[in-house]
Design a binder for these strands. Sequence first.
DNA 1: CAAATAACGGACAATTTTGTCTTAATTACA
DNA 2: TGTAATTAAGACAAAATTGTCCGTTATTTG
Lengths: 143, 143
Amino acid sequence: MLLTSACKYGIQATIYLGMQKDDSFVSIKKIAEEFTIPFHFLTKVLQLLTQAGIVESTKGAKGGVRLGKDPDVITLFDIIAVIDGEGIFHDCMLGLPGCGLNTPCPAHEFWAPIRTKYEKSARAISLKDLASDTISKNLRIGK
Amino acid sequence: MLLTSACKYGIQATIYLGMQKDDSFVSIKKIAEEFTIPFHFLTKVLQLLTQAGIVESTKGAKGGVRLGKDPDVITLFDIIAVIDGEGIFHDCMLGLPGCGLNTPCPAHEFWAPIRTKYEKSARAISLKDLASDTISKNLRIGK
DNA sequence: CAAATAACGGACAATTTTGTCTTAATTACA
DNA sequence: TGTAATTAAGACAAAATTGTCCGTTATTTG
Ligand code: FES
Ligand code: FES
């Protein structure tokens, strides 16, 4: 599995937030229902993103979450790194310590280019890209 | 995590088998010690590969495992598919059912090319490639 | 044939991930 | 000021993955 469920949920939620027209708060419950994500689980995922500054939240009536930065400067890399960690972008495919050209494993030549492409693409794609694509091409985020 | 631990162990073990000079059986215990893999766990992983014909085994003294096919025709794809399944090569990055051009998700344009490269490379690299590289370049498989 | 070796197979335990529930804290609004 | 709404936080449960243990079966060797 490339991404944990937590991370998939986080990406769905942030794309959804990126699609909002104004900057009012959206309740987590609403997002959870929209994509059929377990509410309390999504709560914890969004707390991670909130702590990282990617998402802002307020409690109470009319509270909820919204993006904490311009969707232009939030990348897919940022979201994945916060929830799943940067391991997927740096680690040895076989789990050996210290992947690098000094002490490569047999899979290195195979994996390093793919991983690099994955990281570069993830750093290059912003939440604005994802959200505006979703709107303009009427894509599905969930279901 | 890209690969499960089970799959990483399986790849390490099969590369090791591909490096053997003759076609005698190697005990699983030996492999487990070589790479510090939990013995009984490796046993089960290799049973999967045995059932798939990638590995052959015999019980009893002088028993063990060896490759069940020419290392030339066993690909990294085969090994991953047997242990972790083909999901990583086909599934939607966000976990939505039926990834495809008909009903893409916002991540599809990002993920599909990487996944394709991953699959093509995995199908193109054989156990012989991995094993002979390991020998000629003195690479580490474990530790 | 007996003993040692080694894969097979099932049960079970530990750990991690995922999901649920309950209470507390904070905010809007009537 | 009080009530409803909503995130935060922690405890707990379920499920999946990983790891351990034990008995069985099969094979070699003396
Ligand atoms: S050392 Fe294993 S992928 Fe780089
Ligand atoms: S539909 Fe999501 S990656 Fe293809």
